[in-house]
Design a protein around this nucleic acid. Structure first.
Length: 192
DNA sequence: ATGAAGATCCGG
DNA sequence: CGGATCTTCATT
């Protein structure tokens, strides 16, 4: 054993959303028999960020008020893709971390069954592909997965963290709140 | 009731 | 580059 595998708990998500998003790069996400290295995330701020759901959706504001830091925020985008976020909630701000890409580690066979057409390195390269390959869906909305058996996030090193503008949004496009692992072949898109 | 927008992905 | 597909929210 190399020991010191550091499990990330709820308290990790009680700091600023941007910091959470950045520090998750290089960590390992384990879910339902599959795991992957977190190589791309984005931060959203519940206050003052027009790109965040809380800006235009009362339901999202209620979610932030009612749920705890570390809970899953899962929603259907474009009527066909589930997107996975973690609620951030603490003294330095509230918001979400969107999981945008993972490098597959364990459970690749299961992932390939769910996403038959994708090469291994692309199985979770994108927020919609990620949930599809890992089997994350609407039933997981509000899940307290960090307390549940079978799911965990383990701290891990990064070779270097890139940052740039968030992808696929039309508001607050200038904020560099997208983070990625330098050199990863599983990014949803290259960094500028 | 109706319409628009949306943190995407795939195929041609 | 367009189409798929459906929920949330604001407006009529």
């Amino acid at each position: 054993m190399t020991g010191r595998d550091e499990t990330i708990g709820r308290e990790f998500f009680r700091r600023a959303p941007v910091r959470c998003a950045r520090e998750l790069i290089g960590c390992t996400f384990v879910w339902g028999g599959c795991s992957g290295r977190i190589v791309e995330t984005e931060a959203y701020h519940a206050v003052g960020d027009p790109a965040c759901h809380t800006f235009s959706r009362p339901g999202a504001r209620a979610f932030v008020a009612e749920q705890d830091a570390g809970d899953a925020y899962v929603y259907l985008n474009y009527g066909m893709h589930w997107l996975f976020n973690i609620l951030v909630k603490g003294p330095d701000g509230e918001g979400f971390v969107l999981f945008r890409a993972l490098e597959p580690m364990a459970g690749v066979d299961s992932m390939r069954e769910r996403s038959p057409r994708l090469p291994v390195e692309k199985l979770a390269a994108g927020p919609g592909r990620l949930t599809r390959s890992f089997g994350i869906a609407g039933a997981d909305h509000r899940a307290k997965f960090l307390d549940a058996p079978g799911s965990v996030i383990v701290a891990g090193p990064s070779r270097g963290i890139l940052s740039g503008p968030r992808i696929g949004i039309s508001k607050a496009t200038e904020l560099p709140w997208r983070f990625g692992e330098r050199g990863s072949r599983s990014l949803s898109r290259p960094f500028p």
